[in-house]
Structure formats: structure tokens, C-alpha cells
Write a protein that binds this DNA or RNA. Structure first.
Lengths: 250, 250
DNA sequence: CGCGTCATTGAAATACTTCAACGACCGTGG
DNA sequence: CCACGGTCGTTGAAGTATTTCAATGACGCG
């Protein structure tokens, strides 16, 4: 017997996510049609141009939203993390594919459910609006990054966002040391597609940061950040690397 | 005596804009506190980091949303055109400056008004949600453009969007000819900031399109597009200019 | 162990930027 | 009316960041 409460109990979407905006009876209604599903990395949740039949919240893992150009080039136009949702209620066909970047857990339910809920509950509408507005802000940050940053700055900025995301989740305990271990949610190829670079450039810039002892690279998905301040400086710096090099010389 | 109806009567926001979502009594309430205001090009409607005290809909002209990097570099992260609104209801400080790119007419009213209206009217909420979701889609298109296109493709894509925007507004009459006259909403510097290029590169790419007889340039804000298909091809093409050159050779 | 995928590294090519000079346009003031 | 200065756009030449092409190395899996 699956009681709605039990499935939602230890859900990351419960507090900050969509479900936090629901009243108990609404939550129960949602819980009744909800399915938690797990997918492996690479799984296509919905493809560009399709009308997604379902709507879902991400429980764990990272989903990349990507568009592709006729020539085969692709660009990741956004990342969705736990608490984010996939799909546009009342929208038509998706304008980007949603693909699992790692193994993911999803809270999955029919499109009609979310649309019904949104039609009736003003809290749900409010939540959706705020969420989309936040996503728009993030997209605009990214436009800035893609349009005006050098490869070095892009990599530094990317590492900073991973760092921030990871800090937000873990306890204060792990933060005391200057060194921080981070887990990259993306492969080199995906980082390249995210930052609008080639995989080689990504690799070289990471190598440079390693040579400068700002980071250490373990296996390709993990690294240790020794000097977050330097990364910050690189992002801020006008002439790439200028202030950053000074900061390192200490 | 300013009657609410009269001020809203020939308003571009009436049909497709926010006001189209309002009931008559809501419209009347809005009309009572609304002011139409005109600003010259360059006027700052609200600056990055400020909490905008007002909310407004654009009646005519183009507003650029821009962010700046500490080094002085700037990037236009979006354009707002007639029917679009400025400001995020329930949001805090603006994360981008809104600056008039041309002379603009605004329908201006206090922040509290739109927030009150949105709290009460579900139609207003719906409209806001749809609008932000559309903006997000456009932002994602732009991410694709900035991350994966060459300078030539960026310019072609920009001209195509101007062309599309202009076509949407004017009558069918003017479209019969292959040649289309377009009015650029931005200066070269602004185009550069929009496309993430330098002004020189913009100028050179426009020159190349002119040499190839795809366009003619009149004064710097107007041009004639002779071969929209070539522009389209350039955007689609894998190796920039390859298919486009063939298309031109005819 | 060998194979395939993913990451790294090097050398050459190139797209874009930077620096610098010049030309066109426009309003101002002589 | 024309000369003047300012802004904006164009063009050229040199420099540089990033890409492209190509080869090698590391890791995981059957």
C-alpha cells in the first residue's frame, strides 16, 4: 500500500520545491498519481520538438537541457538540478531536449495533473512563476558568460557554480578547510557544450589551472579546489589572468 | 479629463499584451493609475541592482536589458519590444539594467498596482507566467546563438530576427517583393554587445554581406535585404558560408 | 588482455580581437 | 554658409585566443 505521504516524505521537492506550495489535500491528490522513476545517464526524458506527455520534478542527479544546430553542433542551454522541474505546463512542444547527465531520480506525473493543479491553486501558479523567473535570471547570467568571457573565465565561472551548488547542499563541517572537493556533474564534452567551447580548450584550461596549483584533478569527475579566491578573481578580472596570477604568486 | 478607456484604447498592449488579460473593471482600475510616458534613447528606466519602484509595458520603441562586467565590458542579455513588460513583479532588485535603445513610449504604473492585480486576478498571473516562459525560450535561443555560432552566423541570425519582427508588424502588401527594407533597432555598438562581438567584427561582417550582394546598406540604421534565403542558409550552414556561397552563385 | 570511450597534449590553421587611422554624418557656432 | 569638433562607422594590419587536426595516454569493461 503506497500512501501519498510516504512517497513524498523524504522528497527534496517537498520543502523548496513545488510540493512545498501545496496544501495537504492537493499533495494527497498529487501523490496518488505520482511515480518515482530512476533513469540512467544518457536517458532522453523528452526530445526537442516533441510535446512532453508528462511533467516531472528532479529528485536527484542532473539533467541537461540541450539544443542542436542542423550541423550537429550542440549547446547545453541549461542545467536542471534537484528541486527543479522539467516541462512547461500549458506549453506546446519542448524547444530543448532534456537528457539525464547522470543517473537521475524523477518524480513523474501526467501533464494534465500539473495543469489541473495549477488551474485551481494560486499557490502552484505563484510557485511556477517564481521558478521560471529564476530560470530566466540564470539564463541571462549565462548569456553574459557566453558573450563576454574568455575560455579561462568560463571554466573558472563554471567551477564556481559547481562549488556553490555543492556548498548549498552539504553541511558546514566540510567547509572549514581551504581545500574543497567537488564532484563535476558533467563530462568534458558536456562542459564544452555548456560553455560554448571545444573539449580540447576545456581540457587545456583545466590543465593550466592545475599547473598554477589552483586545483588538483583526481579522476576526471572529481577535483580539489585549493584556491577558490583565485577562481573568483579570474572571473572578475578584466585582462584574463592578470590579477589572478598576482594572487597566486603569494 | 483622462478617462481610463481613452488612454488604453489605441494601446498595443491591449490585445496581445497584459491588458488583454484584464476584465473591464480591472482595466479601469489600472487605467486610473496609469501614465503614458515618453523617454529619449539612452534613458535608464532602471539600473542593475536597484529595486524598480514601478512596472511598465512598452508601447513603442525598443528597450535593451544589459548587464556589465567589472571590467566595463557589457552584454545585452535581452531586448524588450512593444507588448513586453519591464520589471519582475514580486521580485527584488533588477539583475539587469533597462535602457531605452530608441525613443520609447511606456505605459507606466506603480509596482504595487501590478502586484495587487496579480494577487487577485488569475488571468494576470497566467499572462505573466506565459510571458516569462516565452522570454526564457528566447533567452535559450540566444544561448545557443552565442555559444555555437560564428560571427557571420550571428549577424545573419540577428538580421533574420529583425526581419521577422518587422514582418509581424507590417501588412502583407510590402512583402511581395524579394527585397525587404528593414530598420535596425540598434546601433553597431549595441549589435556588438548583443551578439558578443566587437564593433569592428560587426562592421566587417555586414560589409561582407554587402559585397556578396545579400544586403544593401543605406544609412547605418536601415538596410535592404535582397536575399533572405541566403541569410537563412548562413544560419543553418555547418561550414559558414559554404552553402550560402552556392546559393548566391545563381 | 584488448577494445572502445574519454581525456590530454602538440602543432598548425583561423576567426576574432586589438590597435590605429580614416571617413561619414550631424549639430554648433563662427 | 562653411569650418569645427564630436560621435559613429568603416577599413587595414598585427596579434592572440580558440579551434581544428592528429596522435597519444588513461580508464573501464567484456
Amino acid at each position: 500500500m503506497r500512501k501519498p505521504r510516504s512517497i513524498c516524505a523524504e522528497c527534496p521537492a517537498l520543502e523548496k520545491g513545488l510540493c512545498g506550495a501545496l496544501r495537504d489535500d492537493e499533495l494527497a491528490r498529487l501523490g496518488a498519481v505520482t511515480r518515482h522513476r530512476t533513469f540512467p545517464a544518457g536517458h532522453v526524458i523528452h526530445a526537442e520538438g516533441e510535446v512532453p506527455p508528462s511533467f516531472c520534478a528532479i529528485l536527484s542527479g542532473v539533467v541537461k537541457l540541450m539544443k542542436s544546430l542542423p550541423n550537429g553542433n550542440q549547446q547545453i542551454v541549461g542545467l536542471a538540478r534537484p528541486g527543479d522541474f522539467l516541462g512547461r505546463p500549458f506549453g506546446g512542444e519542448a524547444r530543448a531536449s532534456a537528457v539525464a547527465a547522470s543517473e537521475i531520480k524523477l518524480c513523474w506525473f501526467p501533464r494534465a495533473t500539473i495543469e489541473g493543479l495549477a488551474s485551481e491553486s494560486t499557490a502552484v501558479k505563484d510557485w511556477l512563476f517564481e521558478h521560471v523567473a529564476d530560470e530566466l535570471e540564470r539564463a541571462q547570467e549565462w548569456i553574459m558568460l557566453l558573450g563576454r568571457m574568455t575560455a579561462e573565465q568560463k571554466i573558472a565561472a563554471f567551477l564556481m557554480t559547481v562549488l556553490r551548488d555543492q556548498r548549498a547542499q552539504q553541511t558546514d563541517a566540510a567547509r572549514t578547510s581551504g581545500d574543497v572537493i567537488i564532484e563535476l556533474p558533467l563530462s568534458r564534452t558536456e562542459i564544452a557544450d555548456y560553455l560554448g567551447l571545444t573539449i580540447e580548450t576545456v581540457s587545456r584550461q583545466i590543465a593550466r589551472l592545475r599547473e598554477r596549483k589552483v586545483i588538483s584533478v583526481g579522476n576526471s569527475r572529481t577535483m580539489v579546489v585549493h584556491h577558490p579566491e583565485v577562481l573568483e578573481d579570474v572571473v572578475e578580472s578584466a585582462l584574463p589572468g592578470e590579477r589572478a596570477k598576482e594572487a597566486l604568486r603569494v
